[in-house]
Simulated scan of single mutants.
Amino acid sequence: MSKVICITSGKGGVGKSTSACALAGSLAMSGKKTVLVECDIGTPNLHVLLGCENRVIYSITDLAVEPIEGEKELLSSQALIKVTSSDKSNYDNNLYLLAGSKQIRRDKLTQKELYKVIEKLKNDGFDFIILDSPAGIDDSAHAAMYWADMAIFVVNPEMSSITDADKAIAVIDSSSYRAENPSYGDAVTKHLLVTRYDQQASEIGDQLTCDEIQSILRIDSLLGVIPEANKHLRDASQRGLPVVASSLVNHAVGQQYIDAAQRLLGNNIPLRSNKVSFFQKIFKK
């Protein structure tokens, strides 16, 4: 049975799309048939992060809208891009992308349209359908949150990021399909993913700790803690690879995302230390 996961943040610029690509790639590496869905219709970038800029023919919008009279309805198999890597990473056989349009046709999808897309993908037998939500809590972000079975809240250890995430949590708790229809089953499962984390700064009080963030947001499940690594993430983006790709995964960032995906699958994986040594700081990448 397919699981629908919404990756959201409330605030932009926290690493949400980077995290979506890394988690999707990690799940695919674990043998799970995974599709990453671009829900940011206005400013899509998943196709860039995954090196698929020149392979986008149809978009989520094309799959969602009703066909013009006399035309056949688009099949999901026509719109999906099978993600392959330049370094032959072992997610190549299980990772797919439903991209956003490179042309500005419209700025959002309705809940009904997104439901239609999700049902098509469920019928395709995907284990995980990962919705990369737009930042914020407007109608387009709400549409992505509405159909979620699970929600992953990506936050930086800053109060502005945390307060915005708290608003997104309120939307999930009050206005998701599961919240509005309790007879359907359990409430949306919530997980926390902390990015740009400096463990040493948190230990001396210069940054919020993970415990403090969890306490503020009232989320028990800490899926992962991703260290600050601007250069490494920039290199991955420029190469069109998720940070869990074979040629990048030896870095702590890739390992943390792989661990996070294993926790998502229910495996008991201890959190790694994010401490940076004196020499690592000098030669930081």
Rank of each mutant, 00 (worst) to 15 (best):
D235R: 02
P270V: 10
G254F: 07
G240F: 00
R263Y: 01
H251D: 13
N267C: 10
V249L: 07
N267S: 15
Q214G: 15
G254Y: 05
V249T: 08
V225R: 02
Q256C: 14
L222D: 09
Q262F: 11
L217Q: 10
E212A: 14
E228W: 11
Q238G: 06
L264N: 01
A260D: 06
Q238T: 12
S221R: 14
I213R: 04
G240Q: 02
P227W: 08
D235C: 07
G266A: 10
D211V: 07
A245K: 01
D235T: 06
D220Q: 13
P242C: 10
C210G: 03
Q214W: 01
I258Q: 15
G224N: 11
I219F: 02
L222F: 04
H232G: 03
S246Q: 11
Q262S: 12
H251G: 08
N268M: 08
N230L: 10
C210K: 01
H232S: 05
S215W: 03
I216D: 03
T209P: 13
V249K: 09
V244I: 13
V253F: 01
P227K: 12
R263T: 04
R263N: 08
G266N: 08
K231R: 15
R263D: 08
N250C: 07
S246F: 02
R234D: 11
A252L: 14
V253I: 12
A229P: 07
Q256F: 03
Q256G: 05
L217P: 06
D259A: 15
S247F: 00
I258A: 14
H232A: 11
V253C: 04
